[in-house]
Computed example of a mutant assay.
Amino acid sequence: MLNELSVVIPAYRSEALIARTLESILQEGVLAENIIVVEDGVFDNTKATLDKYNIKHIVQAKNMGAPKARNVGLAEVKTKYVMFIDSDDFVSDKLISGLIEVANSANADIAFGPWRFDGDKMKTGTLRYPPALTSSEWVLFWLNYGVIPTCSVLWRVDSIRSICGWDERLKKNQDGEIVIRAFLNDFNIGVSTQGYSTYWQHESQHRVSDAHIIDRDFTSNIVYELIMSKAANVKQRHYSYEIGRYCCKESWMCFSNSYIEGGASWKSRAQAHGYSKKGYSLATNIFGGLFGYKFGAKVKHFLFPYFKKLIYK
């Protein structure tokens, strides 16, 4: 069963942690020949670690970003399924076999499994389990209530190729954009409760997922336009309201990072969807009520680092 799956690992300054990632994948039973590491520019001694393993190592001459690296790896995949696991994340307790089993039994195009947060200077988080939802419900869940890390997501190779893989323009939230694109294309969805992945958080200045607010806003606008153009029930009251909540959340993010033009644009969209609250959650509604929309966002942004560790418990 595990010979049906390949793992693509985008690597960027990864020498410190990639061995742990590889060992966890091999211990799950994935064949070494089906592990593809795409080094996104050579900036450290990652190669010395990779030379110890009989895996495929592709080197990009310069840093092109994680989506490009994942697509380069995807082009080399010859198996039925693929996972994209970042070089600092790892898997445990038969997560991968559970995902394959669910994908086969449900004829799924995409399957989700459990995960937890862990990382530098933070407590190990509790296990989180993906809910069983319809495609339209998944869109709203992903927008407003949480995401599932790529290390707990399995794709049918033909299916991810059918939506043209990862959007290489994106520097932020690429994993959110691609799964929403999958939901909007009515992919069959499977959910596994077996095993878990660990999504590693750290403070390195080289962390791949760090990006400026403009990069986040660029992706968020693409996601919004996708939903508005493809979601069949976008005009339904509840659905529109939840999209409005998403717009409110993006407005807060822009205002908190002093991107006033973007914040105003998202706030206008939220109101157009009938969302009139001053925040997108209990906390932001309180901050908005006490300090107003823009200043409330700034206050939350200032306080968030102090509560970040609690969020990921």
Rank of each mutant, 00 (worst) to 15 (best):
I36C: 06
V37M: 01
V37I: 11
V37E: 03
V37A: 01
E39T: 14
E39R: 15
V42I: 08
F43S: 00
D44P: 03
D44F: 05
N45C: 15
T46E: 01
K52H: 11
N54H: 05
I55P: 02
K56T: 11
H57A: 08
A61I: 10
K62N: 09
K62I: 08
G65N: 06
A66H: 06
N71K: 14
N71C: 10
E76H: 13
E76T: 12
V77E: 03
V77K: 05
V82K: 01
V82H: 08
F84S: 03
D86F: 06
D86M: 07
D88H: 05
V91K: 06
L95I: 02
I96L: 04
S97V: 03
G98Y: 00
G98A: 00
L99M: 10
L99N: 02
E101H: 08
A103E: 04
F117H: 08
D118P: 08
D120C: 10
K121N: 11
K121H: 08
K121F: 07
M122S: 02
K123T: 13
T126F: 10
R128Q: 12
Y129A: 10
P131G: 04
A132K: 14
L133S: 03
T134D: 05
T134G: 02
E137P: 04
W138H: 03
L140I: 14
F141M: 15
L143P: 00
L143H: 06
N144T: 06
V147E: 11
P149G: 06
S152F: 04
V157Q: 10
V157S: 11
D158F: 13
I160D: 09
G165I: 13
D167F: 05
E168V: 11
R169E: 15
L170M: 09
